[in-house]
Design a protein around this nucleic acid. Structure first.
Lengths: 216, 216
DNA sequence: ATCAACCTGAACATGCGTGTTCGAGTTGCA
DNA sequence: TGCAACTCGAACACGCATGTTCAGGTTGAT
């Protein structure tokens, strides 16, 4: 008997705990990657692709897949994590110093491609995973945004009259909304980054000493 | 034989075509309302409440429910439509004339309660209904926003450098994002309307003649 | 060369929600 | 009063994706 190759307790994922992926057999590692690749592109196309679909696309037996990801949610989680990590890598190569406004613009530009391309992965995750988990996966990225926003506030180029958290939410919200609009054909993917940035910079700017309707 | 009381062809909904609801028997009308009420609150609590749950909550047999809504999607559609209509009624009582900025603020204030309370209904709909349908249901509300934005642009208090559609999307996006944040405990429902408005007014304001980093 | 780790297809177990049918009550309405 | 409209629970038909097990067959590491 050999059956399913669960490291030991057969906890979950593949890259957490148990057998650390790096010390697995070469073919296993290859398959895991193939599955992740397939899952990412399948989910990007169809939010609720079945496990069978994904296995087939990965050129792997369904059983093999379950050997690595004990549950569908497990798989989705892994794919989301991976996708976010990819975005995070892209951001590592992005200069987030200097004028916070320009830093934010660069950050948007660097993430937009991935947000746009894999918005369906996010949707799939939203159906499968608890909201807190999704938030947790985004943690590092969230922090990046927060750092920029925070610096901007201290420097005085970003508003200080609204909760910082909300400003971060605003950034995320608009990026994903743009992805939706693009998918629906209401927005051109080319212009998106520019438009998002323009909107965000305005939204985050300190409120001007308003010139009321009258009373000069 | 009497079985299921389908008006004639048994098309769908209950309030469209066929027997116009007004000329149905009193108990039927009552039940339909009860079902709609139950569905609205059930879905508000649990995004994927089963048809059985809803029927029970409505104090009605499952069969009866299917007699009125031939499919789950049908029911969800009806609930969404109804919820949006409720919001629309609230907006009918709202003054959307005068300064577009104030009009927008009032519009946000009037809709926030419903958006906040029934955000799960929207989520349920997003899983069950095609995106275009959801968009269509919101048509009248969308138009209201658009009207205000449009007027604001002509008057010069809203920006003209971004697609009008996008500005409308921005309004929606931020309202729903705030609803999410509130549900997650990251935002106080009391402050929400104020915060949303503040953010939107800034986002929609015409870009100021920017004072670049240097070069005075 | 050897053995464990790994892969495989097929079949099975199953749970769950949906939608339908049946046969027999109620109840609104004219 | 009487009939059609309406309701009821229970049972069934079903599809469908998930997860498991079986009984071999490969392949990678040492």
């Amino acid at each position: 008997m050999a059956a399913t190759p669960r490291g030991a307790g057969g906890r979950s994922s593949a890259q957490r705990a148990a057998t650390p992926l790096t010390e697995r057999r070469a073919d296993a590692r290859r398959n895991i990657m193939a599955i992740l690749d397939a899952a990412q592109s399948c989910l990007a196309r169809d939010t609720d692709a079945s496990v069978a679909d994904i296995a087939k696309a990965a050129g792997v037996g369904r059983v093999t897949l379950y050997g690595h990801f004990s549950t569908r949610a497990d798989l989705v989680d892994a794919v989301l994590t991976r996708t976010v990590e990819q975005a995070d890598v892209a951001l590592d190569a992005t200069d987030t110093t200097g004028d916070p406004r320009q830093a934010l613009t660069r950050l948007v530009g660097a993430s937009w491609q991935i947000v746009h391309q894999f918005r369906s992965v996010l949707q799939a995750a939203q159906r499968e995973l608890p909201a807190e988990r999704i938030r947790a996966v985004h943690d590092r990225i969230l922090r990046r945004v927060q750092t920029i926003v925070d610096r901007g506030r201290r420097v005085g180029v970003f508003r200080d009259d609204l909760p910082e958290r909300w400003l971060v939410t605003t950034v995320f919200s608009l990026m994903h909304a743009a992805a939706e609009d693009t998918a629906a054909g209401r927005l051109d993917a080319e212009d998106a980054a520019r438009i998002i940035s323009a909107t965000l910079l305005a939204a985050l700017a300190p409120p001007v000493a308003d010139v009321p309707t009258a009373t000069p």
